[in-house]
Design a protein around this nucleic acid. Sequence first.
DNA 1: ATGAATTTTCAACATATTTTAACCGCCACC
DNA 2: GGTGGCGGTTAAAATATGTTGAAAATTCAT
Lengths: 225, 225
Amino acid sequence: MSDITVLVVDDEVRMRKLIKDFLIKKGYGILEAGDGEEALTVFEENRNKIKLILLDVMMPKLDGWSVLRQIRQDSKVPIIMLTARGEEQDELFGFELGVDEYISKPFSPKILVARVEAILKRTSPELKELKDYGGIVIDPEGRTVTVDSKQIEMSLREYELLKYLLDNEGIALSRDKILNNVWNYDYYGDSRTIDSHIKKIRHKLGKRGKYIQTIRGIGYKFEIK
Amino acid sequence: MSDITVLVVDDEVRMRKLIKDFLIKKGYGILEAGDGEEALTVFEENRNKIKLILLDVMMPKLDGWSVLRQIRQDSKVPIIMLTARGEEQDELFGFELGVDEYISKPFSPKILVARVEAILKRTSPELKELKDYGGIVIDPEGRTVTVDSKQIEMSLREYELLKYLLDNEGIALSRDKILNNVWNYDYYGDSRTIDSHIKKIRHKLGKRGKYIQTIRGIGYKFEIK
DNA sequence: ATGAATTTTCAACATATTTTAACCGCCACC
DNA sequence: GGTGGCGGTTAAAATATGTTGAAAATTCAT
């Protein structure tokens, strides 16, 4: 489970619920606060988990700007301000205080999610997309393969071939298809070459190697079983 | 040792000691003054070293506002005013005179330190945030690279290439990508020239050179391991 | 502007790794 | 029980990178 949590601060319950639903769908954890004071308390208690704050400007007790200032005294956590229409004149003021983004109400959930993801992506490296296929973890950015938490060295073809199989999890792939996708389309050679690579990959995957199944007469398939 | 010195001006010895202790712990040098006149004297004598002044408002002989005004006549040194509760109405007045921050007594040491660091960070270049990649420290402003506290001479391309790798820590970069980002986009030459530079950089990085990994068939990747 | 010093690029060779082809023996399927 | 497909193995071929040094380009100082 992702331990990336977003703190949503808004005095309207409906608004919080709306935001919450969308962000949870994206796999983030959510914490809520209904006013500025609560926001500060919740933030202090969950400092390490909170990777982003969505902060409404207009709130009872302590408004968004005050919360922002307090938090900025000793934290650089990204903050997105939620402003009602017509409050734009404050933007400059806010940027000086370290506001990362503004979203003005009413907003489309799509925009909200997009901005949240954009900010989190640039601030939380742990968000890198790692896919886990039954103990086999592949990181396309770093071009690394990890099996049961141990990094495995893979050559170019090995990596590409494995990735192709994983991307097509559960689908039987013919040798032709594999050749056309992993090798250059103009490769004209023995399709038995694939077998050699499969063998090496299976070996490197250790006990997970059996996830690569042979489909007699066709080719191979990756399936976790 | 840092030669950043903070001048603490307050008539209460206890208060000065409190502040002093915390800032010394953070590695700053401290100068003290017990009243406004002394403050001006000490400031004049240590003008070049003093990078920040913490200035109490209420003081005998010459109050904080007068000191502020005097200093502002020919110096832009950042000043944080220490105000007693209930003096907030003066804030606007102070900002015009070039007050950078207010901290109202009583304050938590944490807040004090946080604000001091925030201001120094943006005003004292020598405090600039330097990123440390496993012993390799890069300063984009100064265009310098330090390995295990020893500065390394880097040529233009070497620096740019290393910086690009560091900026993309953990990401495998193809030669194409590297060429397009580090060289001018219209460079048409041998991509093997990258290798030459990599070799030189690795050599200069010494034992840290191994953090630059070659991804066979792709290019290179920087990763601390 | 000129020459010196440095940096960058390139070419050539050395090494290392990957890919491929070829062969063998086994096993599944008819 | 034959047979064609597959896995395993091996070594040669192909490719990629490391290394070196010198030419070309650029920068710098005079």
